[in-house]
């Protein structure tokens, strides 16, 4: 009798604790989700309400959110349509813009890291190149466009060049700082091991400077996205910038607003994506 009761007791507690534990975990996760989600949702709703109130008056310059949704409903529900030419869904415009950014930004990453390494390693190169770069980097992205159109005689490579020239400066500067901050100890280790310059670059420099490089890449991708919208307004073709300009010319203000929401969201995603890759790559270094 005594035995059976002692055996039965733990069975009961195990059974009781299991279903109890599961909802406890979900409740706490729900709590944290709610804590992070409720404030932005409340603020967003408040913002939309104020906007609706301000723009519902007759004679208002901008449409209220309710009209934006009804007018641009086709655009919102079907981003994938393709009627040929430039009459495509927002997805295709965004895709074209992202492709340009990806190409220009990739070129800027490779060149920026190489040039940044050179400047970080060589006092002479820094003295020679730094003043030039400090002047060039203050040139607004769009000011490069006429020059690149003249050089390439085509919109597509010109847009890519504008992305490249816009995003390369923070990559160069941050890489150079990262290279200059490599601890002497790591250089000593590589000297004792007799690493050749290529091995030193790949095995010591890049990982050691990675946190700095990714800071530069994050700034760079943000600037690229700023520049592409403006550049596409001028060069035309398919792309979110052209879409916005086209909508303005046809007085489709609601479409512009929808496109702007997309532009903001994609910019946010790009920034987070680069940051995410950065945390993956610099796992060890950051905690050094």
């Amino acid at each position: 009798m005594a035995n059976t009761s002692t055996i039965a007791a733990p069975v009961v507690t195990v059974k009781a604790s299991k279903p109890k534990r599961a909802p406890l975990v979900t409740r706490s996760t729900l709590n944290t989700i709610a804590k992070n989600l409720i404030p932005p949702v409340v603020v967003l709703i408040a913002f939309l309400v104020i906007w609706e109130l301000l723009c519902s008056r007759p004679g208002a310059g901008l449409p209220p959110p309710s009209r934006v949704v009804t007018e641009a409903w086709d655009l919102i529900v079907d981003p994938f349509y393709d009627n040929g030419g430039t009459d495509k869904g927002l997805f295709w415009h965004i895709l074209a813009s992202i492709q340009r950014v990806a190409l220009g930004f990739a070129l800027a990453t490779v060149m920026g890291i190489l040039v940044g390494t050179l400047i970080g390693q060589s006092e002479w190169a820094m003295r020679g190149l730094d003043p030039i770069f400090q002047v060039l980097r203050t040139i607004p992205p769009l000011a490069w466009l006429p020059l690149s159109l003249a050089a390439f005689r085509d919109g597509q490579p010109s847009a890519i060049f504008v992305i490249f020239i816009t995003s390369i400066w923070p990559i160069i500067i941050n890489t150079a700082v990262g290279i200059r901050n490599i601890p002497q100890d790591y250089r000593n280790v590589s000297a004792v091991l007799r690493l050749n310059p290529l091995e030193f670059f790949a095995k010591i420099m890049l990982p050691s400077a990675a946190p700095y490089i990714f800071t530069g890449l994050r700034i760079g991708v943000g600037l690229s996205w700023l520049a592409i919208v403006a550049a596409e307004m001028l060069i035309g073709g398919v792309g979110i910038g052209f879409f916005i300009w086209d909508a303005w010319n046809s007085s489709h203000i609601s479409e512009i607003i929808v496109a702007l929401v997309y532009v903001g969201l994609i910019g946010f995603v790009l920034d987070r994506f680069v940051a995410f890759v950065g945390t993956l790559v610099t796992r060890g270094t950051a905690t050094a």
């Binding site: 790591y186 000593n188 280790v189 004792v192 050691s208 270094t285």
Partner: peptide, 26 residues
């Protein structure tokens, strides 16, 4: 410098992005 005169540095100088094994493997 060369590996025939290996140095153990005061502050260990391990490369933080490599594991223990990878540090020796390098």
């Amino acid at each position: 410098p060369g590996p025939d005169r290996a140095v153990v540095f005061q502050n260990h100088s391990l490369l933080p992005w490599l594991t223990v094994r990878e540090n020796v493997a390098l």
